[in-house]
């Protein structure tokens, strides 16, 4: 990976995400220990590791769904402080896809997608609908636009969730175990959508156990355990020559 123009002053740098000395506790439990990570624009990062290792927590710090006690997170040059305006500014440009989809059940698929463009981006309804249809076509479910989410399969719901996030034209997409809640036969359709998305050059951070996806798409793979980043490497090196015993163990378990 090549480093773009360096600089850590928090102003427009080349980095999409800069996390420095991030520490977080749940009560006595130290979930994140001294996380340092920089992600370049357009980079595709896969984060894996045993559950309870802090992967999701770290991801959720990037759009401040989680608070932290120490450290600093800068997204797209914007320093994430307690300032609500700053938090909203970051969230406007960071899309997120959840394990449980979290579609809004009282709105149709189309309304799910147009909600934020209309109310956050102040887009006219007609434009927002056109935009939403464009992304729904991209995830290949335009025909479901008028349905309510409960009528869709898990895979379809997750693709709607991806389309919904994309409608805000984010610079960065966060995926929090997007295929973990899916029936096995639906995993592929969601992964295919994500692979396509990766081809577009959008910055992606993906927490997942889908190692095939990691191998195919990731620029770097991060292995996290016990709240620490144990290892960061390019996919080939990561799978073939894991540096740490903990990583080797994990890979053995997950790859049989």
């Amino acid at each position: 990976m090549t480093n773009p123009s360096s600089g850590t002053d928090g102003e427009k740098t080349g980095w999409a995400v800069e996390i420095s000395a991030l520490n977080k506790w749940y009560g006595d439990f130290h979930v994140l220990r001294d996380i340092n990570l920089t992600v370049a624009r357009g980079e595709r990062i896969v984060i894996c590791g045993p559950s309870g290792g802090g992967k999701s927590t770290m991801l959720r710090c990037i759009n401040r769904l989680e608070d932290w006690q120490r450290g600093r997170v800068v997204v797209d040059g914007k320093d994430l402080t307690d300032d609500p305006k700053q938090i909203l500014a970051v969230r406007r440009d960071v899309g997120m896809v959840f394990q449980q989809f979290n579609l809004f059940p009282h709105l149709t698929v189309l309304e799910n997608c147009t909600l934020a463009p209309i109310w956050v981006r102040h887009m006219p309804k007609k434009d927002a609908e056109e935009l939403a249809m464009r992304f729904l076509r991209r995830v290949r479910i335009p025909e479901q636009a008028q349905k309510y989410p409960v009528r869709l399969s898990g895979g379809q719901q997750q693709r709607v969730a991806i389309a919904r996030a994309l409608c805000m034209s984010p610079n960065i997409m966060l995926f929090d175990e997007p295929t973990s809640a899916l029936d096995p036969e639906m995993v592929k359709e969601v992964l295919d959508t994500m692979v396509e998305l990766a081809g577009d050059g959008i910055t992606m951070l993906v927490v997942t156990h889908e190692m095939g996806f990691a191998r195919q798409v990731a620029d770097r793979i991060i292995f996290m355990a016990e709240g620490q980043i144990v290892e960061i490497n390019e996919p080939k090196a990561f799978f073939e020559h894991p540096q740490h015993e903990r990583t080797r163990l994990f890979l053995q378990q997950i790859l049989h």
Binding site: L65, P84, N102, W119, V120, A165
Partner: peptide
Amino acid sequence: PRGQYEAAQALALPYWRMMAL
């Protein structure tokens, strides 16, 4: 569910919009 709040927050909806919509 919490996920509904989080999804709305992740879409950058401010508090009152999130509640109302």
